[in-house]
């Protein structure tokens, strides 16, 4: 204050000098002082966050990007050349307004660009009908004509009884191999093999559950070798081995008992014995017979014996059902001399 008073006293000094004196106290005050020279009426604003400096100007870059390839495609182009093989969906190569994806109700699904949903699913854009047609045309020159004599299923079955079934697998993965392609199945109708009664029975027993009684088909499947060709050899070998083994008659096959029989022969079974015993008992001439005598016993002396024999055989061979059992009951009633069941 004393300094000010001293300056004041020195009246001759200019205002500029006065300012120089203020500088001793503060440097910032100096600039403010300058502003104050212009508009001294306004308040100064303390800008703590410095908002004004942070605002960046949006840069609008003008580019010379070409229009999408999909938009430039000619409608009469050859699609097979655009999309020659299987590949993941690419939006710019497909001139279709595709949309795919889940959205809340009422909204349109997202478009094709940058759409992962479209890329996830496999597509068949490489297999359009014209492409297939042209490819078939191309490989036609390597094909031979279908034999004219093999004009029906029966003819094919007759000339080519063995059916080989394999599967090929197509992959879009790095490896084109599939282990399932090695499996080979051989199918043949049993009736197309040259077998007699004994060998047929033996063949069926050898193949076991590979034989289907209803369709008469023998199905042999091999998957034990790593390559298809090996498995094919193996199924052929199995069929050949079973066939020739079926024709062999071993020594032990003579020991076949009634339980091992593939069908029910009434003459060799206990049913005949009991009928013969019953017959002899009714005639009061019961005697012990040998097995041979039982087998050779003439059942025509028993009334209804023949019918009974057929009824029991069909019951045993065709399985039990209401029909076979009814037939059996009728036959038994006839043999035993009972009245027939009344139908009400």
């Amino acid at each position: 204050m004393s300094l000010f008073i001293r300056n004041y006293k020195l009246n001759s000094l200019a205002a500029g000098y006065n300012a120089k004196l203020w500088r001793l106290n503060s440097t910032t005050a100096d600039s403010a002082l300058k502003k104050n020279d212009e508009d001294e009426e306004e308040f100064r604003v303390l800008d703590i966050l410095k908002k004004k400096d942070r605002i960046q100007r949006r840069i609008i870059r003008r580019t010379d990007m070409q229009p999408d390839r999909a938009d430039r495609m000619a409608p009469n182009q050859n699609w097979g050349n655009v999309w020659p093989g299987p590949k993941t969906f690419h939006p710019s190569s497909v001139p279709l307004p595709l949309r795919q994806g889940y959205v809340p109700k009422g909204q349109a699904p997202p478009g094709k660009k940058a759409n992962a949903e479209l890329m996830k699913i496999p597509n068949f854009l490489h297999l359009t009908p014209p492409v297939i047609k042209s490819q078939c045309e191309a490989i036609k020159q390597y094909c031979t004509e279908w034999p004219s004599l093999l004009n029906s299923e029966e003819a094919i079955e007759k000339h080519y009884p063995v059916e080989i079934i394999t599967s090929d697998y197509c992959h879009a993965s790095p490896s084109i191999r599939n282990p399932l392609a090695r499996i080979v199945t051989l199918r043949i109708k049993l009736s197309s093999l040259n077998l007699d009664k004994h060998s047929k029975d033996k063949f069926i027993r050898l193949v076991g559950d590979r034989y289907d009684k209803e369709t008469d088909l023998v199905t042999i499947t091999a998957d034990r070798c790593p390559a298809r060709a090996q498995n094919l050899d193996y199924v052929n070998y199995l069929l050949t081995a079973c066939y020739h083994e079926a024709w062999n008659i071993e020594e032990w096959e003579k020991d076949k008992t009634e339980d091992d029989m593939e069908y029910y022969d009434w003459n060799n079974n206990a049913s005949k014995k009991s009928l013969v015993n019953w017959h002899l008992r009714t005639k009061n001439e019961l005697r012990t017979l040998t097995d041979e005598e039982y087998k050779s016993f003439d059942i025509s002396v028993i009334e209804g014996g023949e019918e009974y024999k057929n009824a029991v055989s069909s019951l045993m061979n065709d399985g039990e059902s209401d029909a076979t059992l009814k037939k059996y009951g009728e036959a038994v009633r006839k043999v035993l001399g009972l009245p027939e069941k009344k139908v009400m």
Binding site: N269, S271, S274, L275, W278, V312, L325, V332, L336, L338
Partner: peptide
């Protein structure tokens, strides 16, 4: 075989 011939009812 024990019961044969029997009348099934």
């Amino acid at each position: 075989e024990h019961l044969d011939p029997f009348v099934p009812i």
